[in-house]
Every structure is written in structure tokens, then in C-alpha cells.
Design a binder for these strands. Structure first.
Lengths: 147, 147
DNA sequence: CGTTGACCTTCCCATGATGGCAAGGTCTAG
DNA sequence: CTAGACCTTGCCATCATGGGAAGGTCAACG
């Protein structure tokens, strides 16, 4: 398989495959005489693995570790789980941070009537004159993931 | 005020203040003969505004618009609100994306006992052999993971 | 055989917001 | 006068990804 084919089949762009090779996340593939990279089924599996891990938000460095655990028949699942849990707590932090922003912005936005007058509690809020919050912090739809 | 003082007072690093000046987010400050940037109260307000907007997750481009609305006495609050709502929907998308990741990862992680054996549903999941989900799709606290 | 178009190669640059470091100038208190 | 805190500019790094240029290769079609 040429790089375009694995790219399509794995969902990882050709550009990225070359990049992953360059940073040593995947090995150097053999080349044809003309210099074209050649891939096997096995490489496809690896790329799909990487793709899935990216979809779960793992960093390339974490994926490097995951791959080495994947290849290591001696690994303990605890090591993998530990990596996953650590990423999980990172995700939770990021979610919390975004929700905090969201809630703050919602409360500013709600206090702005959005008409054609220039008075705007949103701008005032940003400027530091916090508007008298009419409603207490709304933990709306997708609220609290207990961090 | 020198740059260090406004930096401390505004919560925006000196580095960033220079950067904001360079990209035209804030104006060029006057300089002393020695070339030191000089700031006024007014600049401090602007930087605090920027800092608050960054804390709410607005991009520098959005902040550029917010600032110009802020400076514009003729603005309609509707314009501001529209910007806020648009950012809000972006935040919601990002939150949803993270939650989707989180839920997927939680369900993988839960199915991994994390002992010293090498069998690991997390790795298998990443490899594409989705583990027989012992528990039906957890619509946990926050909605589904329609992956 | 020749051309066309799809594919491949490498290399460089851009993103967005921020930090770090280096080499050098300035200011102030002791 | 000197030490140390501060300022200046400029370059590089992050992280994962995309864009594009300049050029080589390959397969199919006429």
C-alpha cells in the first residue's frame, strides 16, 4: 500500500503519517526504488490505533507510551489503566475549565438584553464592573462532572 | 507605569503586552527616551478587559472586535451579545467534544481491571476490537456519546 | 511512444497563545 | 561606582495539523 491508501484506510492524513514517522512515533517504512513508502496491514492497525487514541484526546507522547505498551506482551494492564486515568483527569480539568467559562459567559450574556442601545453588561463585565448577577451560577444542561 | 507594573496590575504578562502591541490589538505606547514603554491608567483598563475576555475563552481576534465595540459609543448591545452567543456555542461544542471523549474513555477504562496481567480492554478498544461493553451505553450524568 | 493526471517525494511556512532565553541597554539604591 | 532589578529586541519552542511549491513516478489512454 502507498501512503495515500493507508491514509484513507486509517483516517490519518498522509501528511501526519510522514510526521509520525519523522518524530519516531511509527517506524520508518520500507521504500520502493522510487522512494515511495510501502505499508502493510500491520501498519494499518498501528495507524488506526493512533487514530483512535487521538480521537480520545491522548497526546502524541501519551500515544507513544500506549504503543509501547501495546507492543509489549509483558505489560500489566494496570500501567495502561494508569495512563488512561491520568488522561481522564486531564480531560476533566479541561471540561471543568470550559464549563466555568461557559457559565460565566452565560450569566453575562443573560443580563444583556441585546437591543440597539449601547448599554451592555457584557462589556461592563469584561471591563470589571461585574453586573449584579441576577441568577446564581447556572449549572446548566451538561453540568457537573464531579472532578 | 513601566511594562512590568501594568503587567502585574493587569495579570497580562509583559511578554504578551508586547505581543498584543505588535499584532495591533492595543496601540503603540509612548516610550521614554531610553525606549521604555510608558502606560497610563487607561491602558491598564484595556489590559484588564483583555485579560477578562481571555479568561472567558475569547480568541484574540474576537477580543479585537470586543475592544472596538467597547470603544465605540454607538455600538448596539446586540452586536456584543451576538459575539458572545457565538463564542458560547463554540464553547458548547468544545465541551461536548471533550465529554464525548471522556465518556468513551471512561467506559474503556471501567472495563479494564488494571491488575498485573497483560490483557487490557483499553488497548483492545484502541486497536478497534471494541470490548463487549459490560454495561449498556452509560448515559452518564451528561448525555450520550453517540460515537 | 507520448501525454495527462493522479500520486508520491522533500522542504518550508503558518496556525494560536504563550513561554524561554540571550545579549545588551537603563535605572536606582546602597 | 556597582549590583541587581528592570527594560529592549529577536529568535526559538510548544502542539498537532494543514498548505503549498518544486519536482519525481506511475498507470492508463490514445
Amino acid at each position: 500500500m502507498n501512503i495515500g491508501a493507508v491514509a484513507k484506510a486509517s483516517g490519518v492524513s498522509a501528511k501526519m503519517i510522514r510526521h509520525y514517522e519523522q518524530i519516531g512515533l511509527i517506524g520508518h517504512s520500507p521504500r520502493t526504488e522510487a522512494g515511495y513508502r510501502q505499508y502493510q496491514e500491520r501498519d494499518l492497525h498501528t495507524l488506526r490505533f493512533i487514530r483512535s487514541a487521538r480521537d480520545l484526546g491522548f497526546s502524541l507522547e501519551q500515544i507513544r507510551q500506549l504503543l509501547s505498551l501495546w507492543y509489549d506482551g509483558e505489560r500489566s494492564s494496570a500501567e495502561v489503566k494508569q495512563l488512561a486515568e491520568s488522561h481522564l483527569s486531564d480531560l476533566d480539568k479541561r471540561i471543568q475549565a470550559l464549563i466555568t467559562m461557559r457559565d460565566a459567559l452565560v450569566s453575562l450574556s443573560e443580563s444583556c438584553c441585546g437591543d440597539n442601545r449601547p448599554d451592555c453588561p457584557i462589556l461592563e463585565g469584561l471591563a470589571g464592573h461585574v453586573p449584579a448577577s441576577s441568577s446564581p451560577p447556572q449549572l446548566s444542561k451538561q453540568k457537573a462532572q464531579g472532578v
